[in-house]
Design a protein around this nucleic acid. Structure first.
Lengths: 216, 216
DNA sequence: GTCTATATCCTGATAGAC
DNA sequence: GTCTATCAGGATATAGAC
């Protein structure tokens, strides 16, 4: 079976990358777990980095397609509408059977802050376009926020989301006891982000002239 | 000079770990950059992981000491007081000359979400105690928040902070133009987090019995 | 397409002279 | 404390038989 070999490699790579990290997982680990030959990875994918790209593309393809559909359907959205259009298409996959999506989301969250730029780029290049659309749509719902303040707050939200993805599957959270259900996590994230993004802008004693101009 | 060799290794390791990541930086990279002999790393630090621990300990020691002092001095604090007691002792170091602290903060932010548990543990073990105190003090300022909601929101804040640390030194932010000054970043983070943490709790249609009980 | 065998390189760590 | 030289192992990638 040729197509099965590719899928078996993708499944094993996804799980091992999520559990041990990309750099700490060898191709031997993957082919052993998948019960395929070592050389099959290079035959089907070309390189280890291309395998990582394929892992992201398999699940991010449908997710990003749904995100675009939801953005297209938005009419005069508020902050929460835009946030949910971006986040829900990913989080709702947690309701599917098996833990494949949970592992994938952990991998996404961790790779997003990876220390190695080459590895991080494999993910970033697949969310750059949808991410730009998301940022633009979100900023449009916050017209009174100075651009640099929006910029900061947008990154706070991205960080909160990435961290949630990276650790929502984690058993041993260091500082707290336990985490709520997937749907509750999404609701909590949206509530938190909506309030944070809509907080009144500081009177800004040391804000730049350009930003002050943007306030009008 | 013996003490200088240790410092030179620490400086080079900090910079290279922050720029390329721990796994992608070899001891040869470090000793070349530091202009010391390869064997000096194992002589002075024992292993590569122990070197990483030493990099964290050097700067986190004074920062955490100041955090404890500020927590001890708190009297009937609100959410913002607790947040600043934890965050300010680190962020204020950005005002010191040179970019050593900026590199260090980037390393902290990235290591916090590292895909490899062994690497992440080198950092976590040095912030576990102060982190637990921070979480406890913060929760005390939000007595009306159900514990599981607080738990989620606390992690959102941690993610926002880690992401900010990891990328505040980054030139090429993918989605936005530029980032404001260090002091403004801290103010923005605090404003965002205070609003997010104090957002009213959702009426909770599917909350667990224990959490409902905690609301009382 | 799948497999074995291997090329080529780089890693962290160390032994032992100075 | 510092250095040279090297060990032992693991990595990715590939050549070539089947």
């Amino acid at each position: 079976m040729l197509v099965d070999t590719k899928e078996k490699i993708l499944d094993a790579a996804e799980e091992l990358f999520a559990d041990q990290g990309f750099a700490s997982t060898s191709l031997r680990d993957i082919t052993t777990e998948a019960a395929v030959n070592l050389a099959a990875v290079n035959y089907h994918f070309g390189s280890k980095l291309d395998l990582l790209r394929a892992v992201f593309a398999r699940r991010l393809g449908p997710v990003n397609a749904e995100r675009f559909e939801r953005f297209d359907a938005l009419e005069d959205p508020d902050v929460e509408d835009v946030l949910r259009a971006f986040v829900a298409p990913l989080f709702k996959r947690l309701r599917e059977p098996g833990d494949g999506w949970a592992k994938f989301m952990q991998l996404v969250g961790r790779t997003h802050s990876d220390t190695n730029d080459e590895i991080r780029a494999c993910l970033i290049e697949q969310i750059r376009v949808i991410g730009a659309r998301f940022a633009g749509a979100l900023q449009a719902t916050l017209p009174d926020l100075p651009p640099d303040v929006f910029s900061s707050r947008f990154h706070f939200f991205v960080g909160a989301m990435a961290h949630t993805l990276a650790f929502c599957r984690h058993q041993d959270m260091p500082l707290v006891s336990s985490l709520p259900e997937p749907d509750a996590i999404l609701d909590n994230l949206v509530d938190f982000a909506v309030a944070g993004l809509r907080a009144p802008a500081r009177s800004a004693p040391a804000r730049s002239a350009m930003s002050l101009e943007a306030i009008k």
